Simulated assay, not measured.
Amino acid sequence: MTTETPPRLRLEQYLGMQIKRQRQAQELKLADVARIAGISQGMLSKIENAQVSTSLDTLSRLCDVLGMPMSKLFSQYDQPDGNAILVKAGDGMEVVRRGTEKGHTYHLLNHTRGPKKNFEAYMVSMDDASEEFPTFAHPGTEFLHLLEGELVYRHGNQLYHMQAGDSLTFDGDIPHGPEKLLQVPIRLLSVMNYGNE
């Protein structure tokens, strides 16, 4: 599975971005802010574009002009990095599930860091309409969203006719699985939530 982690901003980039955002949010011109802060327009442009490191005195004057406390300028720089996981289209790890045959694949769209796994997300692809499926049962709750195709899905003794755009949420402890593929190919997003047990 390929995941992407964006690079961390250098301090100069972060400060420049914050100053520029604040200036633009107030619809202030670069030239006006530079003049009031007592620096050249070129210098302010270089600060905003992280082309120079600047003194605390200059940053303090810019904060005064922009009406923001200096502490706010630095407040989010050292916050913990985000831990979002981006899986690009087609990069999900292929997983073999019990009873799956040719024409039926699961691509895992996430992996959970740390000792506790509280959910899994799969892109399920089915393209063999004659395939027979086992039933599955697992702890937690499952959410299905049908992106493409048409099928009948079994949950316990109930059958649900699903078309593209339909969603189904159910208790995973009760045996469930595709009953009949009516229109292939089928692409089904499956999210299993295991809770905090």
Score class of each variant (00 low, 15 high):
69 P>K: 14
141 T>Q: 15
102 K>A: 14
60 S>K: 04
93 M>N: 09
72 K>V: 07
119 F>I: 03
18 Q>H: 05
36 I>D: 14
4 E>L: 10
112 T>Q: 14
150 E>I: 02
176 H>K: 02
100 T>S: 15
17 M>F: 03
30 L>M: 15
179 E>W: 12
20 K>L: 08
45 S>G: 10
42 G>F: 03
31 A>R: 11
193 N>T: 10
119 F>Y: 13
109 L>I: 09
87 V>D: 01
41 Q>I: 14
124 V>F: 02
21 R>Q: 14
149 G>E: 08
20 K>R: 15
43 M>R: 04
122 Y>T: 08
156 G>K: 06
133 F>H: 09
168 L>K: 09
193 N>F: 15
108 L>F: 02
94 E>N: 11
195 G>C: 09
29 K>Q: 14
152 V>P: 01
119 F>E: 01
146 L>Q: 06
181 L>M: 14
41 Q>M: 13
76 Q>K: 13
150 E>W: 04
169 T>I: 15
123 M>D: 04
66 L>I: 05
129 A>L: 11
34 A>K: 11
96 V>Y: 07
115 P>E: 12
166 D>M: 11
118 N>A: 10
44 L>I: 06
95 V>T: 07
4 E>N: 04
126 M>K: 07
13 Q>M: 01
25 A>I: 00
102 K>E: 13
166 D>P: 06
8 R>F: 02
52 V>T: 14
152 V>Y: 07
183 Q>W: 01
74 F>L: 15
7 P>H: 03
78 D>I: 05
192 M>D: 00
153 Y>N: 05
5 T>C: 02
177 G>P: 01
193 N>S: 13
123 M>W: 05
179 E>S: 10
8 R>E: 11
4 E>A: 06
184 V>Q: 07
186 I>G: 03
94 E>V: 15
32 D>I: 01
150 E>M: 05
77 Y>Q: 06
166 D>R: 08
179 E>I: 00
132 E>S: 15
24 Q>Y: 00
68 M>K: 06
192 M>L: 04
158 Q>Y: 01
159 L>E: 14
170 F>N: 00
95 V>G: 01
96 V>D: 13
104 H>F: 12
173 D>R: 14
166 D>Q: 07
65 V>C: 13
58 T>H: 03
17 M>H: 12
92 G>L: 09
118 N>G: 01
23 R>T: 07
149 G>T: 11
89 A>R: 15
133 F>W: 09
61 R>D: 12
76 Q>A: 14
122 Y>P: 00
184 V>T: 15
185 P>Q: 11
38 G>Q: 12
46 K>T: 03
19 I>R: 04
45 S>V: 02
150 E>V: 03
30 L>K: 10
42 G>H: 04
37 A>W: 12
19 I>K: 03
130 S>I: 02
136 F>R: 11
26 Q>W: 07
63 C>Q: 05
147 L>R: 11
116 K>P: 00
167 S>P: 07
95 V>Q: 11
20 K>W: 04
70 M>W: 02
148 E>D: 10
130 S>R: 09
179 E>L: 00
141 T>W: 08
163 Q>N: 12
93 M>G: 07
82 G>I: 08
73 L>W: 01
140 G>R: 08
9 L>D: 06
111 H>D: 13
28 L>T: 05
19 I>Q: 02
75 S>A: 15
114 G>M: 08
8 R>W: 03
159 L>M: 11
38 G>S: 11
117 K>V: 13
85 I>W: 00
113 R>G: 14
24 Q>T: 10
100 T>I: 05
117 K>A: 02
